[in-house]
């Protein structure tokens, strides 16, 4: 049997695949028992937009930058620090680059390259 085995875990993909197909089949069989008709191309299959006519085209799309809002708002201390670092001055970026390179070199010299 094809499988991955390490000292702490294991995985048999083919058995998982079989079980997955059977599970999906069960879900599909349950799903099939339901009513399937609806009135196509009437107002019924418009999306719900609080009773207003649904927005069309570009207006209906939600921009992806909303996705990060929660993180930016919650971790604003971190993000503000990062924003201050990205000030657009090329000398600062090169300075960061050289500084971190020097830091890495010092570590390599101290440990002799072997970790």
């Amino acid at each position: 049997m094809i499988h991955i085995e390490t000292s702490s875990g294991y995985w048999y993909p083919i058995i998982m695949l079989i079980a997955f197909i059977i599970s999906w089949l069960i879900a599909y069989l349950i799903w099939r028992r339901g009513e399937k008709s609806y009135k196509k191309n009437t107002e019924e299959d418009d999306v719900f937009f609080a009773g207003n006519p649904p927005p069309q085209g570009e207006l209906a799309h939600i921009k992806g930058n909303n996705l990060g809002w929660g993180f930016v708002e919650a971790l604003d201390g971190f993000y503000n620090g990062m924003k201050r670092m990205h000030n657009g001055i090329i000398n600062d970026y090169v300075g960061w680059f050289i500084g971190i390179l020097a830091f890495v070199l010092i570590i390599i010299i101290l440990w002799g390259g072997a970790i």
Partner: peptide, 12 residues
């Protein structure tokens, strides 16, 4: 009840 209701798929 939910399995008796219509299954609407939005237009777009």
């Amino acid at each position: 009840k939910l399995f008796e209701k219509e299954n609407i798929v939005p237009k777009n």
